[in-house]
């Protein structure tokens, strides 16, 4: 059974007069990993931010697990997001960063929340840093905490917006490894990234966006070996 986790239908969005997303259609199956790539300004971030409604859209529909949830906090608990800049809460320890939404939004008791948090920190291999503050961690560690924080809400899907772009090169791998593990465990993922090695290894499909449109969607093998669209080819020549 190949249930659709995220279904984007005829999505259009404007910033004022600027048509930033044009008739986007994209279905992501449960357990599927989709990588989105494309030139800067093509609308990749805007698209995934529409999925958890950090951005409003004017036209079209996005369904998560078969419904268009209008209660935004509830929607966002189903879809975790990891940001380029980590965005950990600097005034809270790693552990409290993870438990905050469980105790506040899910009304879980503190002990249960901490247990879940430690389990998720274990999963991203950073449990031993639980009592530190974010600023005491390296970038790669911070990003792994951000992943654990999102996982704590038991999301049905995860969105990643260039999770390794702000990292020093030597820290990129530790984050990508954690993401690959997640994929292995069957997490539904939409990941904006320019890490083509990761895309090749992990993605079921690669989506190429340009100027607010989905230009090409293909499995990694054919995407890299045999891109259909001229714009895709130009883009790949530039980054590979």
């Amino acid at each position: 059974m190949d249930q659709t986790a995220i279904s984007i239908n005829k999505l259009n969005k404007w910033y004022g007069d600027f048509h930033v997303l044009k008739d986007i259609d994209l279905q992501v199956a449960t357990g599927e990993q989709v990588v989105i790539c494309g030139p800067s300004g093509s609308g990749k971030s805007t698209l995934i931010r529409c999925v958890n409604r950090l951005e409003a859209y004017q036209d079209g529909h996005i369904e998560v697990m078969g419904q268009e949830e209008t209660n935004l906090p509830r929607l966002r608990r189903q879809v975790g997001m990891v940001f380029q800049q980590f965005n950990l809460f600097p005034h809270l320890t790693v552990l409290r960063n993870c438990t905050l939404a469980m105790t506040r939004a899910l009304r879980m008791d503190q002990a249960e929340a901490e247990e879940t948090a430690l389990r998720m920190l274990e999963r991203v291999r950073i449990r031993e840093q639980a009592l530190k503050f974010p600023t005491q961690l390296s970038g790669g560690q911070q990003q792994r905490v951000a992943i654990a924080r999102a996982l704590c809400m038991s999301p049905k899907a995860m969105l990643f917006d260039e999770p390794t772009s702000a990292l020093d090169p030597e820290m990129i791998k530790e984050v990508l490894d954690v993401m690959a593990d997640l994929a292995q465990d069957g997490m539904t993922m939409i990941c904006v990234t320019h890490e083509m090695g990761f895309a090749r290894q992990v993605a079921d499909r690669i989506v190429f966006m340009d100027a607010g449109q989905v230009v090409e969607v293909a499995p990694p093998d054919s995407f890299f070996a045999n891109p259909q669209n001229l714009r895709t080819r130009t883009f790949l020549e530039q980054i590979l």
Binding site: N52, R76, G80, Q85, N87, A146, M153
Partner: peptide
């Protein structure tokens, strides 16, 4: 980003 991160975890 702080506000967005808070909203994104369902607060």
């Amino acid at each position: 980003g702080q506000v967005e991160a808070g909203l994104a975890i369902g607060l």
